[in-house]
Design a protein around this nucleic acid. Sequence first.
DNA 1: CTGAAAGCGCTTACAG
DNA 2: CTGAAAGCGCTTACAG
Lengths: 343, 343
Amino acid sequence: MATLKDVAAKANVDVSTVSRALNNTSYVHPETKARIIAAAKDLGYRPNTATRSLRRGRRKIIGYVVPRTHVALFSEILRGVDSKARELGYSVMICITDDNPQKEEACLNQLREGNVDGIILTPTGKNTRLIRDIHACGIAIVQIIRRQDHLLSSIVADNESCGYESVKYLYNLGSRTIGLINGSNLLAPYAERYIGYRRALEEFHLQEIVAASEKPTNSFSFGYECATRLLKNYPSLDAIMAAVDIQGLGVIRAVKDFGKKIPDDIKVMSMTGHTIGKMLETTMTSMEIPASEMGSAAVDMLIAEIEAPSEDKPRACHKLFRTSLTERESTVCSHASGNVHSD
Amino acid sequence: MATLKDVAAKANVDVSTVSRALNNTSYVHPETKARIIAAAKDLGYRPNTATRSLRRGRRKIIGYVVPRTHVALFSEILRGVDSKARELGYSVMICITDDNPQKEEACLNQLREGNVDGIILTPTGKNTRLIRDIHACGIAIVQIIRRQDHLLSSIVADNESCGYESVKYLYNLGSRTIGLINGSNLLAPYAERYIGYRRALEEFHLQEIVAASEKPTNSFSFGYECATRLLKNYPSLDAIMAAVDIQGLGVIRAVKDFGKKIPDDIKVMSMTGHTIGKMLETTMTSMEIPASEMGSAAVDMLIAEIEAPSEDKPRACHKLFRTSLTERESTVCSHASGNVHSD
DNA sequence: CTGAAAGCGCTTACAG
DNA sequence: CTGAAAGCGCTTACAG
């Protein structure tokens, strides 16, 4: 790789002049500049951002720490993060934690040592201390999906109202025995959805029926098993709300195997809709979450913090995104499948 | 952030000694060493990998350039890449191209300027020249899934045999009119699958029925529309092979909407199985591809090239992974749904 | 308008 | 066993 020095030699000027010419950082005689640009082009010169950042103090890299990427929600967020970051001249370093706090710790340390300018993360619920430490070192942080620490910025969905509205929606369709398949109450989004669910139950005088676990719940099999259990234990069950899409797939399959009809016997919906719901044999009603927008908003928020002069860093900033109901066949009798052609 | 200098001051030694002590790079008096380690710990010293690499010449970063991540195949590869890279002390910079050559070009330049040590990519089919240039600059390259350039290393699936075996499998089940929904022949995997499909057709004396396009095909709607068309045009159609899972979902839905039964009237299978096939209302037979293993193999291959002494860089290295048939309900009449509980 | 110099944080021959 | 010095590739006051 050609370096600044090579260009300088070729153009017969000092490296500092080359730097100025190429960065438009101060006036350089047009003729000199032309010579420099020609030389740079000739040699295929490409600035070395790594070392540039050494002087400038910024790496133009952000880290994205995510539990998993094969769940549509997170891969959509990643898509938003990636494209917004590139648009603003930043690169994205990715770290997958599998929701394992030890891996999360390793990821966070790796990012810190790699000198990223900021980190977007969906935290596991642990490592709060480490995350604050890193923030205290001057690395910007934005939490996404899960707000674990109110002192750090965050971008989350309106989970409580999502839980409430889901019950209300099913109630209005006539459901009276509504089961909730949820995740660990130690993770904010699940806890919040549960609160919304509870609030609606009280308002409508319904019975609480919850299947949840502190072990991993973000899976087809968890949805399948919980749904099967609820169907057995509550003969009057007429609706199931799943916290996430992938559980919803398990629920649909379980209802089928149990010999009941969707939506006539059992209505099914997901509270974190993304991508998959409209591509099924029985399409699934869900509260859709604007994942990609949330990802790009996180980048905006993060970079605002990164680029703020260090005297007046913004305080923690919290942004809420609304989820929106999309009705599909799992709750309403199949009319024309209008949604089927898009993806 | 504390720097080496701070630690040196605190421990009352030269920075070079601190460097040696912390890196175990030459003998340091145990007492001195202890003092240094204590000081480093006290100050919460963390090495700055960015600048370290300036001296060492290695960044310990690899780039991963991928068309999209919401397709299970690619997110599984990413999972393999991420975990293997971290295991070996490397970080992963991700770039999503959307299969758009211009975006790919921007990604590649960004990675080159960011001084990554190597790049794993699923190329769009263009930018061959740029990719070679980057390789010529000393950046290692491994192609994954699509082998666009035989001069560069690659990790791909045995697509031709996958196409052949799929037809043979369906033929043995009794199918005689087998449609193929494919992608652009300009992309190697699709072209290869087509060749395998053709070879089998000739062997079994079957009619060729193909739906493909050079526009994006990796979607539910493409699968849906092609399947609908084939069902209309070929009344004797009794099987459909989709190149990828997501097309397969569209096919399943189209067959249902068309009023035919799976698998009795129409057998359906996907040639790039991953994750989703077993989570459906009608589970889908597919040729499963070991995506995560391929991702981690790509990292091994890449890092071998990166860390080889520059005198004897390995020549291009090509590795083929076998796909394996997994039978599910879309081709065989539903017996016990044994597969349903895992994910 | 442009050169010479210092320095970002680290590593590594070179002395001693 | 450890210090002093040079240097990785770049940027940026400081002179002139």
